[in-house]
Nucleic acid binder design. Sequence first.
DNA 1: GTAAATGTTCGGGC
DNA 2: AGCCCGAACATTTA
Length: 264
Amino acid sequence: MPELAEVEYYRKRWNPALGQKILEVKLHGEKRIFRQTDSAALASALKGQKLSSSETHGKQMMFRFTGDIWLGVHLGMSGELRFESAKYEPAKHDHLAIFTKAGAMVFEDARLFGLVLFAQSKSPPPWWSDLPPRINSEQFTKQYLIDSLQRSKSAPIKALLLDQSVFPGVGNWLADEILWQAELRPDRTFSNLSKTDVQKLWQTTREVCQQALNSIGEDMEAIPKGWLFDARWSNAGLCPKHKKPLTRETIGGRTSAFCPLCQK
DNA sequence: GTAAATGTTCGGGC
DNA sequence: AGCCCGAACATTTA
């Protein structure tokens, strides 16, 4: 489900547990989301500790606990976080539930493409420290974008936007939104973009991500007005600008929606 | 019953 | 070497 703004929204759902002591951890340790983690070690290490802070970086979430604990959560395709009552009974797809007096931090993931990461160390683990620059950081300059994409000669820009090592947090709908707002067809290659196109791509990427964080990051329902987003999912697939039908085709391995009239 | 879903990783071809 | 594509992963929903 989630891209950078939704990830930020879900991260905040565990805020009621800030400062709370962990009383119990219930988990489905054999599930795929624990494929890189010793789930039993995680459960025993968490007990008695307190949630101290949390952050997101693209689609990666990181929860800090006392005792030098780093808990990473990636929501994959269908994951979500909830906060439930202290006496909540985890359901079928609630693979991780961390109980405090105030309530339970729950990670639900039906399709199991999500991931739980765990480390106990003074310094940040590689899965948190080795991430590429955030899109809205100062390091994400136009030159950085050019340097990162220059090698790519034949891949469609849609596929490039989905590359998490360059655009952390951009997923299928944000990529379509960026390309629609930048008026660039998803099947263009980076090598044939003009200087103006590159400027537009860079600037629109930053703006769309920032606006998504500002709106959806606070409230999942708050989709900015006039975005492609609504037409992509709910409406009859009409371009919000002139109400003509959008094209849908698989580009970069994913269904892409774009307007053949405004995107060149 | 079939297809598709807001993600990532793997392997093969080039 | 490294780019690019398609398949695989597991489950629900239309």
